[in-house]
Design a protein around this nucleic acid. Structure first.
Length: 131
DNA sequence: TTGATGACTTGAT
DNA sequence: CATCAAGCCATCA
């Protein structure tokens, strides 16, 4: 019994939440996790994107899910295992007009002050729905 | 089947 | 302010 229905539903909500990110904006795994109701599982969000299919025939794939707009809480693109993927992600963000800065260590950093997408989950000042 | 790994986050030292 | 440790759960070996 591999892939329980619950896991599949989790994947679904994660991909859907990622699709809610507007063009030229970025958010964090933890934020996505909180939006889908599982703030304790930011890691699974990353797993979902890792297993995001590339087939354009799949319901969710690299073409319709802006996985590139999802980065870590430090505002930097996770190097995952090879810098090639992160570099590609940075390039995609730049194409959307997102300012991506490269640190001395080669870490790709994104400025949340300019492209940070954080809906009404702020600790204060946001008590009304934006819907 | 178990064990280890990973596109993370938060809190404590 | 920097570093360590624990918690999560799906996937790979």
């Amino acid at each position: 019994m591999a892939r329980s229905e619950e896991a599949e539903a989790f994947f679904h909500v994660v991909y859907t939440a990622v699709q809610q990110i507007p063009y030229g904006k970025v958010t964090t795994y933890g934020h996505i996790a909180k939006l889908i109701g599982t703030p304790e599982r930011p890691r699974q969000v990353g797993i979902c994107l890792k297993h995001l299919p590339q087939d354009t025939e799949s319901r969710f794939n690299h073409d319709n899910v802006p996985w590139q707009r999802v980065i870590n809480a430090k505002g930097m693109i996770s190097p995952r295992s090879q810098p090639s993927g992160a570099r590609n992600q940075a390039a995609a963000l730049r194409t959307e007009g997102v300012t991506v800065t490269t640190s001395a260590l080669g870490e790709l950093m994104v400025d949340f002050s300019e492209c940070g997408w954080f809906p009404n989950v702020l600790p204060s000042e946001a008590e009304e729905d934006d819907d």
